[in-house]
């Protein structure tokens, strides 16, 4: 694995601004702003899997989409293989998207129900002019469809004729057919049953090895990230609170949020672990995020400083970073088992 970053994200911010009615505009009301992603910086090296973990509403999917400019970022910079993506014109953006693809969470909603598998999977080839003839297109579609574990005689069926796991395979084929370098996997296994989930995880890992791919793997499941990622980034309310090599972060999490997230995972191997951290309350609304450290409303270790001042991400060595005022007090919510 090389250390050269394939993808570089600098200070990426995505805000959604609410619409105002005429009456509200006349009353000079300020529009509501959802701060989905605030000032996120990260790098994905060539050939690695960066796991992005967080609860629903933390902005992890928005970040994945803003990187591909499926949602236009509000500010910040995305560089892919030395080329700045955020300023590309539409034609150049289309070209670079051949190399940057996405696999979606919901295998039911992400496939057009009125198109056959051959049409769905072949579309990227048409869009990017990658097939020399109709026969060539068909041959390429058959090759990828067989690689991901479906049969050539299923090509003219429609998505509803497949199970969830098979549909996810179709989504993977569509992402891979243009021979990309980088794929945003947006919770690709969350909607699947456990035994099927394992099949898809193994397929994604095999394909990565064979085709030399790089993944940004978005998930809410720490066990899945722990299994397949090389590095992991933990998001909370639009910010990355901790990031580092997966072994370092999962064996010795430093941010209290990562610690509570890990202790909340129901574990087959250590049932009833007494060291459970109880987080009280819900995720605050990104419409009106808390002041200071955004985690302070739920953090058992919060002190006055956390309420007023936002912590800055600190380097803890070995590429491990975390943003917390109390990092150096060696406090841990997890008692050593």
């Amino acid at each position: 694995m090389s250390t050269e970053p394939l993808l570089k994200v600098e200070n990426l911010t995505k805000h959604y601004v609410g619409r105002l009615s005429l009456a509200q505009r006349l009353a000079r009301e300020k529009p509501s702003v959802v701060r989905a992603v605030s000032d996120v910086s990260l790098e994905v090296r060539k050939g690695e899997i960066l796991g992005l973990i967080g609860e629903s509403g933390c902005g992890k999917s928005t970040l994945g989409r803003a990187i591909l400019r499926l949602h236009e970022p509000t500010s910040g910079r995305v560089t892919f293989d030395g080329q700045e993506v955020t300023t590309l014109d539409p034609m150049a953006l289309k070209d670079i998207r051949r190399r940057m693809q996405i696999i979606f969470q919901d295998p039911y909603a992400s496939l057009n129900p009125r198109r056959t598998v051959a049409e769905i999977v072949g579309l990227p080839l048409k869009l990017h002019d990658l097939a020399t003839s109709a026969d060539d297109l068909r041959a390429k579609v058959i090759a990828i469809i067989e690689r991901i574990g479906l049969k050539a005689n299923q090509l003219d069926r429609y998505p509803h004729q497949f199970s969830g796991g098979q549909r996810q395979r179709i989504g993977i084929a569509r992402a891979l057919i243009s021979n990309p370098d980088f794929i945003v996997c947006d919770e690709p296994v969350s909607a699947l049953d456990v035994s099927i989930q394992a099949q898809i995880i193994e397929l994604l890992l095999e394909l990565k090895r064979e085709m030399g791919l790089t993944y940004l793997f978005i998930s809410h499941d720490i066990s899945v990230i722990g299994y397949l990622a090389d590095r992991v980034a933990v998001m909370y309310l639009g910010e990355i609170v901790e990031m580092g090599p997966v072994d370092a972060v999962l064996s010795a999490p430093r941010h209290p949020y990562t610690q509570s997230l890990m202790s909340a995972v129901p574990d087959v191997d250590h049932p009833g672990h007494a060291q459970r951290v109880r987080l009280t309350g819900d995720l605050p609304s990104p419409l009106d995020p808390p002041s200071g450290c955004k985690f302070h409303t739920r953090c058992p270790l919060a002190v006055d400083r956390c309420r007023s001042e936002a912590p800055i991400s600190e380097d803890l060595g070995g590429g491990h970073r975390a943003a917390c005022h109390r990092l150096h007090e060696k406090l841990s919510l997890l008692e050593t088992a």
Binding site: S195, Q199, D269
Partner: peptide, 22 residues
């Protein structure tokens, strides 16, 4: 098969074994 196909934090580094078929 079910137990072998879930990624487990305690067994990190060990391969998972999907149940083939449907």
């Amino acid at each position: 098969g079910l137990l072998g196909s879930i990624p487990r934090l305690a067994l990190r580094g060990q391969p998972i074994h999907p149940i083939e078929g449907q």
